[in-house]
Design a protein around this nucleic acid. Structure first.
Lengths: 211, 211
DNA sequence: CTGCATCCGGGCCGATACTG
DNA sequence: CAGTATCGGCCCGGATGCAG
């Protein structure tokens, strides 16, 4: 990208990561190291040459490194983009009510809104294991020792099984939808939802998503 | 900008404000309402047609509104981009050591790194009035009742007068440069620097900029 | 003078075909 | 699997025109 040529932090940042697709690549790598084809799958719509070019640029400026096994990883500085990506995601929450007609979705993207909803440690959170079936693959939400984590795959013995489109799932997780509202969006629930509500922070910190 | 067509908060955000120049326009409006030509001046390098087009798009999606007196203002939602702009600026701090040869600079941009350095209220901060001469116009940094503010223009009776290139000025303000280091970068100082150091938070919160 | 609109050249982006 | 090569089209940048 052509430089803005301004001595300003924002301009410098955008010179580095303002190119199309760049922050979405970072989004993928925030979850963990990824191989080229995994990135392609997590970035529906990107052209293969663009992905290759962006990865080269990001390596040159020190945002990512390439491991021997053909995986790409964020450097420590690159991980600093976490706050940027989450600030943008939080800001766009009001736009997320419904998926647009041709929107793509990948299950592992769930990890980001979930981390927004359940960030931090809260000892009052019950232990819980939730199977989520939305998008292209099953995911597990696990609450342990006051901390909530998200992983690919099904849990061994889920307390709760959710299935349906991502807006309904997230609406249910955020508390913006109740069981009936989520059902209207095509979400099916097996199990007790009451424990789910207790995962959220008590002092309504997740308000940004709920708006 | 062509939509990413992904049901993801980050993608939605970039669909809205990922276009070239958009976040820089927001940077300008974060300081306050601005007229068209003021924006042109604060955005060196932008083409006039692009500014007009971006302003129209930003109004359509509800990030800005147009006041009767031909000024553009951020909506409440638009002001939410503060966190995005500052997250990007903070992340890019390591790139800000020196201006590049042809970098432009505007004095009022100082307000952003200064708000990063001196955010919040700290009653132990001394009352202080600083005149800063860098860029295209003089600026005033004022510390009152534990809060630091930045305004255009010269103070009536400054305790301290700084002049020189912006990297030296910011280096001095952040504490990353001492008087000698700043002098090497062409900064002249009139007055006592010790009070300046007391403006910074005691628990080294400005570490991001200092790195 | 301010606040844009129009026009045009160049570069970046998107889609697909192809290769080690 | 992990990219490279190519080409059409669109967006951006810069200059200029023009209405209130």
């Amino acid at each position: 990208m052509r430089s803005y040529r301004q001595y300003c932090g924002l301009a410098r940042a955008l010179d580095s990561v303002g190119d199309r697709w760049v922050l979405l690549i970072v989004r993928e790598l925030l979850v963990g190291p990824r191989r080229y084809n995994e990135l392609l799958d997590g970035l529906p719509g990107i052209a293969t040459n663009l992905l290759a070019e962006r990865l080269r640029e990001l390596e040159e400026i020190g945002v990512i490194t390439r491991h021997g096994d053909h995986t790409y990883v964020l450097t420590e500085w690159g991980q600093g983009l976490h706050d940027v990506v989450y600030a943008l995601g939080r800001w766009a929450a009001p736009l997320m009510d419904r998926p647009a007609p041709h929107d793509e979705f990948r299950s592992h993207w769930l990890s980001h809104p979930i981390h927004l909803l359940y960030e931090g440690v809260d000892r009052r959170r019950p232990k819980l294991s939730v199977e989520v079936n939305t998008g292209n693959a099953p995911m597990t939400i696990a609450s342990n020792a006051g901390r909530v984590s998200v992983m690919p795959g099904k849990p061994a013995s889920p307390d709760l099984v959710l299935a349906g489109p991502p807006d309904g799932i997230v609406g249910l997780l955020s508390g913006r939808l109740d069981r009936a509202g989520a059902a209207k969006r095509g979400v099916s629930v097996k199990g007790d939802l009451r424990k789910l509500a207790k995962l959220r922070p008590h002092r309504a910190t997740g308000a940004a998503l709920a708006t």
